[in-house]
């Protein structure tokens, strides 16, 4: 965890099968998640985001009641 801040990009995992359509993710990270009206599930708009967006992603992780979202630091490419 301690070296996570050094990664220039973070990878977002989103498990659509767990999504219950609360939409909290879109509320806290609107550029990253969008609820799909038809399916009632969230759509992940980008699975790699810059480190500046870490805060928003962490908010999305914390606010997802179904724990469908997780983060891992990107491997150095």
């Amino acid at each position: 965890m301690s070296d996570a801040g050094q990664a220039s990009e973070i990878v977002v995992h989103y498990d659509e099968g767990r999504c219950a359509g609360y939409g909290n993710c879109e509320l806290v990270a609107p550029g990253l998640f969008k609820l799909d009206d038809d399916t009632g599930k969230a759509v992940l708009l980008a699975d790699r985001v810059s480190a500046e967006q870490r805060k928003a992603v962490e908010q999305a992780v914390q606010n997802c009641p179904t724990e469908a979202i997780s983060i891992e630091p990107a491997n150095h490419r």
Binding site: G21, Y22, G23, N24, E26, L27, L35, D36, D37, D38, T39, G40, K41
Partner: peptide, 8 residues
Amino acid sequence: YRCARAIA
């Protein structure tokens, strides 16, 4: 139904 964003 099909109003996920409005419901949220």
